[in-house]
């Protein structure tokens, strides 16, 4: 690091002029504008915007810019896991481009390669968002074979991948007749809005959906021959092949295991990342979910004491509870996911 600090004195612009660009607002705007965008992809898009706003030219400047902007993004949100997976993927892609062999096996300078990749990334900013959506369709195509005629699928939350998968499974495809299946949607009281949307979308397609409260999940799973599989989405996929997903996923996974049901996760590959939680409270940020109280309710104007639980809490489901992932790279076991992350991200 000493060498780098020395170099700072050379005419390398320490902070390439980003002028008024603020990556956090850009990120929030991207997410708000397009409800179909996932957090990792929004982070990548925001980084690309930052890249095109800046005048960074050299490898060092670019990487430095990406690092500082990523850090700024991370600091601005309470749960940075998913967006970190996006920025890590972006960074890794650029780093690996430096190691690429040149065209036709010729040794070109890594700088040339880097420049090509950088240009490509900046040119194709919008492409990635549409690709991410295509990935969802791809997952739907992979997963539909797993939803069979007469099945009952238990799911929860408002995962867009799961919604797409179930929606496509209900449609006939040439050479594959349409199938009839039903869905049990576990609704959590606090966050029913997104669940309602998913339920309505499925019912519109003619899929019979039953909604049950979270407290009834074990009861429903206990009915013989009813639920054939549990299918959930994920916010982020960890390096060991587990998932970080909306609160309540872990208990569904435990219940599925207890009842001997298969537990599937539908997730795009850009959600894979280096996070490696050892347990529920090792996600790298505090959700303030546990708030012990006794006696009277605390006074209003006492913000120091009051816990501030996170708006959209998540939990961690370890890989041993996951049967398989439906990804845009086919069906992967948790170990296969782990291998993929280790191969590329380290």
């Amino acid at each position: 690091m000493a060498g780098i600090t020395q170099e700072r004195e050379l005419p390398i612009r320490n902070n390439p002029d980003l002028e008024s660009f603020d990556i956090v607002t850009a990120y929030r705007k991207l997410l708000a504008d397009d409800p179909d965008l996932t957090m990792p992809v929004a982070a990548i898009e925001a980084l690309i915007e930052a890249l095109s706003q800046s005048s960074a030219k050299t490898v060092f400047e670019t990487m430095d810019l990406i690092k500082t902007q990523s850090a700024r993004l991370r600091a601005a949100v309470r749960n940075p896991v998913a967006l970190t997976h996006g920025t890590d993927l972006f960074q890794q892609y650029l780093v690996l481009s430096l190691k690429q062999p040149g065209p036709d096996g010729k040794e070109t300078s890594s700088h040339e390669n880097f420049e090509v990749v950088r240009q490509h990334l900046m040119r194709n900013g919008r492409l990635f968002a549409s690709r991410a959506k295509q990935a969802r369709e791809h997952i739907a195509a992979v997963g539909r074979a797993y939803v069979r005629d007469g099945d009952t699928v238990l799911t929860h939350g408002g995962s867009r991948v799961v919604g797409t998968l179930l929606g496509r499974a209900a449609e006939p495809v040439p050479g594959d007749p349409s199938r009839r299946f039903q869905v049990i949607h576990v609704v959590s009281e606090g966050r029913s809005a997104e669940g309602d949307r998913a339920v309505a979308a499925l019912r519109d397609r003619g899929v019979p959906v039953a909604t049950v409260p979270e407290s009834a999940a074990a009861y429903v799973l206990g009915k013989l021959h009813l639920v054939s599989m549990v299918l959930v989405g994920a916010e982020a996929v960890t390096a060991n092949g587990g998932i970080i997903s909306r609160m309540g996923t872990y208990q569904l996974a435990l219940l599925a295991r207890a009842h001997g049901k298969d537990f599937y996760v539908a997730a795009e590959q850009h959600k894979f990342g280096k996070t490696f939680p050892l347990h529920q409270f090792d996600l790298g940020f505090d959700q303030d979910m546990i708030d012990f109280r006794a006696g009277e309710a605390p006074e209003e104007g006492d913000p120091e004491d009051a816990k501030n639980p996170i708006g959209d809490p998540v939990d961690y489901t370890p890989p041993e509870f996951i049967t398989a992932f439906f990804s845009d790279n086919g069906v992967l076991t948790p170990t296969a996911v782990a291998k993929q992350v280790i191969d590329l991200m380290y």
């Binding site: 992809v41 892609y93 390669n113 590959q269 850009h270 790279n329 993929q340 590329l344």
Partner: peptide, 18 residues
């Protein structure tokens, strides 16, 4: 530079398809 040439990563590189 499509990152397609990482021989042993043949399967893994699909993470970069995005």
């Amino acid at each position: 530079p499509s990152l397609a040439a990482f021989g042993s990563f043949a399967r893994s590189q699909s993470m970069f398809t995005l």
